[in-house]
Design a protein around this nucleic acid. Sequence first.
DNA 1: CTGAAAGCGCTTACAG
DNA 2: CTGAAAGCGCTTACAG
Lengths: 356, 356
Amino acid sequence: MPPTGPPAEPPATDRPAARPTSKDVAKLAGVSQSTVSLVHAGKWHGRVSERTVQAVHEASATLGYRPNQAARHLRLGTTRTVLLVVPALTNPFFGAVHTGASEAAARRDFSVVVYPSPIRAGTELAPFASPFAAAHTALDGVLASSMALESLSELLGGTGPGPGLPLVMLDSAPEAGPPTVNVEVAAGMHALVTHLLALGHRRFARLVPDIDGWTFTARENAYRAALRDSGAVHVAHARTEFSVHEAAEAALTLLDTPEPPTALVCDDDVLAAGAYKAARRQGLRIPEDISITGFDDLIIATVLEPELTTVRLPAHQLGETGMTALLDLLDGRRPESTSLAAELTVRGSTAPPARR
Amino acid sequence: MPPTGPPAEPPATDRPAARPTSKDVAKLAGVSQSTVSLVHAGKWHGRVSERTVQAVHEASATLGYRPNQAARHLRLGTTRTVLLVVPALTNPFFGAVHTGASEAAARRDFSVVVYPSPIRAGTELAPFASPFAAAHTALDGVLASSMALESLSELLGGTGPGPGLPLVMLDSAPEAGPPTVNVEVAAGMHALVTHLLALGHRRFARLVPDIDGWTFTARENAYRAALRDSGAVHVAHARTEFSVHEAAEAALTLLDTPEPPTALVCDDDVLAAGAYKAARRQGLRIPEDISITGFDDLIIATVLEPELTTVRLPAHQLGETGMTALLDLLDGRRPESTSLAAELTVRGSTAPPARR
DNA sequence: CTGAAAGCGCTTACAG
DNA sequence: CTGAAAGCGCTTACAG
């Protein structure tokens, strides 16, 4: 049986089963509270005798002592907790970002709290009820995806005086101010378009998400740049919500034309999955009649048949590197903005265009 | 420019830009600290005059006051933080569970910390460095998936004396002790097999993950039960790692036989994706030559072509309901174990078997 | 209706 | 090498 939450009634036994404190440990070990603290903090060398250290460890083990975090936080003025702000954890890409970030945080004894960013802005909450409102004092720093930037202004010292929180941005314009950890999406897109050009494609189209964000602008710019002076043309463009079925509808508008493109460059694997559906509805074979590409290299990329040519984004590493940068920032170091490689991954969805 | 972590040097200005405390608010409003606290806690009715309340609110706003959480936690003995333990957030199912749980928590002003459960058991950490070690004092409760049960023993009062943490289990044997919130996977499986039987299938096979867990046992038992006395036979069974390509290999062993099954029941959409690949490698058409089913109804289910007949598991609702139960438990109420419906979702991957 | 005081459990100068 | 004391910022009896 698990305990039933808050103590309903202090048990009448002589031992109230209260969590042992450092005072209890001190008493049992026959030393002072200071010594217990020193020993647990590993700051005892040259200050506490070996014997005493032993005694403290034994007493701690006997009582099952765990330091009270709230007390440490209050005393130290730090919470060893950081906030990760991402658009949605249901997107496996950000799940991987979270995992990488959590691992890096755990290695340095930090916890990660996540808020999927579409915090309903309209919801009026009690003065300090909003998760973000508490943030100022419950968090040491913030690691945020640019796709959630608006939700952040409040966090970062928006209201009233007082300093904002230390911040590292993921995937955002490097010149924006805070340190950034980016993925080289431009290079990835360049490699992708170059691959399609080398296959002989000359008629390109784009399927992009209905989301603003540095990363999508960067992809678009790199796509345009790669096509420039290539002899190939960009014939059309469609925006879509981030779902397979919506993407299929949007892709249909691109394909259902007198002179359809031979290469369809999608900004995400999920959108590419929609493009597959549209192509098939049009009776087009992939890759013989139309080459389709994605971005991310999620599990979906290998579920699709033929498997998807895409640009692999190192999600896990992005979270890990971003968290490391944030922790460095908290240590008073000034992390450099970095950029992680994005790798073109060629699979079965791209081929030379059919002769027409 | 964001602040650079810990104060390097207290700025020489007269206003050290320190975070304002309730004392500062009290001074500015010309009242006592107690009054400030009462006002912010909303416990002032009948105890503080309207005018004073106004003054406190104004002073708070002027200073940009936010209560220090660490101090509240220390004083109150509660952290308003709960731990969510799941196998992997990269699995979109658990991403959705997290989202649901976070929303329910935020509504009651709780935060959620997540640890993907495969905590490397071998890694020796400093005495209190492990995220779990701190848990005893930094958390109020735990919401855990059964697929991560081993990692939990330590959390729940394993080492030493002292009470464990209040716990609600997701997807685990209801009789196990702690309150549980389950999905009716058995009913879902029953509906699925009944659907296949009604289509005329008589030769079944199973593709299951190489993972232990109540939910998979429940699925297996329900599958067996549904087949019993149906006139149909279970012809084979394969276990596989949780990946598309591994699942494809395993499925191949089921299909590459003299008398292959006509219906392949997979315990997850990802495994079903592997089965599609195996079927195609064998030259089998879906659903004409083989019906394939999944479980979960992830995005993959609609990416596959034909789209996958599967059992929809309400991941978001599971997280939401589970969190609500945990918060009720923390409030001293005794939540009832509940079970959420799992809905059979028929799509294009199932059809009557070919005459042979 | 309002304020002074105690205390949550820790860490860190400081004194010995 | 070790201990007594102060104080982080809050909330809550308690006294007026």
